[in-house]
Design a protein around this nucleic acid. Sequence first.
DNA 1: TTGTAAGCGTTATCAC
DNA 2: GTGATAACGCTTACAA
Lengths: 336, 336
Amino acid sequence: MRELTQNQIAKLSRVSQATVSRVLRGDPRVTEELRQRVLAVIEQHGYVPDARAQSLRSQRTGILGLVVHRSPKQLARDPFFSALIAAIIDFAGKAGYHLCVDAARAVQSRRAIYEELLRTRRVDGLILVEPQTQDERMPHLLEEGFPFVLIGRYEPTDAVYSVDNDNIGAGRMATEYLLRKGHRRIAYISGPRGLFVCEDRHMGYQQALREAGECCPPELVVWGDFTEEHGYRAMNRLLGLPEPPTAVVAVDDLVAIGALRAAKERGVAVPQQLAVVGFNDSPFCQYVEPPLSSVAVDIRTLAQIATDLLIRQLEGRDPAQRRHIVPCHLVERESA
Amino acid sequence: MRELTQNQIAKLSRVSQATVSRVLRGDPRVTEELRQRVLAVIEQHGYVPDARAQSLRSQRTGILGLVVHRSPKQLARDPFFSALIAAIIDFAGKAGYHLCVDAARAVQSRRAIYEELLRTRRVDGLILVEPQTQDERMPHLLEEGFPFVLIGRYEPTDAVYSVDNDNIGAGRMATEYLLRKGHRRIAYISGPRGLFVCEDRHMGYQQALREAGECCPPELVVWGDFTEEHGYRAMNRLLGLPEPPTAVVAVDDLVAIGALRAAKERGVAVPQQLAVVGFNDSPFCQYVEPPLSSVAVDIRTLAQIATDLLIRQLEGRDPAQRRHIVPCHLVERESA
DNA sequence: TTGTAAGCGTTATCAC
DNA sequence: GTGATAACGCTTACAA
């Protein structure tokens, strides 16, 4: 393993180490002759500057951090996160940044990971996802003045840089669609309580029902997590009700898939006896049977804006607008 | 944003900065009294050491690198990579390492990214995936003595630390299964030529056919990429043949899904008129219609061994065995 | 046992 | 224009 430093290049080029640095940084003051001499040696030896030293000196690592709160197993099967990670890598890379991804399983390790990444200066800034209504990270990060951006929502809305789907509107959109199809008893299978995305979609769902003059019977709302298993269990419970729903809004496509499985198992025909709508328009939606209608969220744009907001902060080009909304749209397939 | 250094802690504790460092590193020589004094100040101010400075000093960043060769769009939809990334994050995290993920779209940027990550010392080591039969990275990395581990295969096999499925065996397994089901005209829809994983599965496919006394008509093998679209086109081409296959081995589940779509569109019944087997046992296999039979590869174990092999190299605990094989197994569902 | 000081490989500010 | 030189924050001989 070679150990090449500016110092060595300097000696080989018979210039000072400072000059090597200048050449590398494109300082216009070095004469063409020296520049060529240095560049030749650099080229010949394949010298590349040490990012660690640059980081220490410049106080910047060129790395963005992303922390997701899913168990490794859930993360492995969740198309939302793979799409998100892929898109962030892409946009960060185009802006010259790398991405460091960590997963925090347990709630108690969450805080630790933020400490680990930000306070240690391992990353220049953080992209946070899945904010909770009572999120202990936010006040902390805000108080310390750490650069971060939120994919999601936090209150007060303008306190943080954030980009989000209009989840209230999305919940409404799915519900109104089912109402238009003539459904009256519509269930909502949610993820965890206290997560903005779930609460917001729930709110949209309620709004749509109320405006249509329907009531929202509490037994038609089931809280859980983002797994297929939860969708399956929740659907089974709902179908076991004395008066089961004729339609269901699932907070996530995986959850919707679980609901489809429960319906299939019980011989409930979809969409004839039960209409199902999911969220995210995951790639598999078109392959399942029946193809799953879903509210598409624009993950790439979410990632793009998040990355841009963060990098602008880091580079002192503070964005004019703190809060950004990316529209959703419904993709109609055969499940509803 | 606070700017706390060991120096400040030292002053506040009325000790030398070296002592602060010793306390943090758990040096047994510091007296209990001083240790307590320093720890109190550290605690009170929430000091955390700067990873950049530590990296420079220790010559280690505590970051592993993973570079995948997929376009962002492909990466976003490929369950193999999300599972792989999730598992690596998990195992690396448990060993105290972070993971930096990059994507190299174009072939010409591949080399650049390795340079960028390794030569700049941004990461301590690299996990490589999808080795090519003529892989320009390998000789380069070997020559420079960079720490890396390969998920896949390279020749000579013992030249590099690597972990792999037995892909030749897996290709055989899928083909023999179809032969046992009575199929004689079996096609192979592959990914790119020159990728070990595709070539190896192809070899297994050929071996199985030959041993069964069948010939391998070249028109039944279609090379392409890892997309659903490729599977769709290839299947259409195969079904348009004067003598179409009655079964197909697809190099990847996504490709298999594309094949299913083509069959469905043409009114070819699966599995009655066409049997389909994929690879990876992706989560969606059980949800598609008909549920897709697939050769399951153990992604978590792949990730675990790869991470372990790499970290052992980094920490000087060189593993006894360079080459590791993880077995596959066939998951029978209804598509074949 | 504790402090002083020399780096780690850069960048940037000085003089010359 | 170029070369010393002082940081950046940390670890670790070496001194005391």
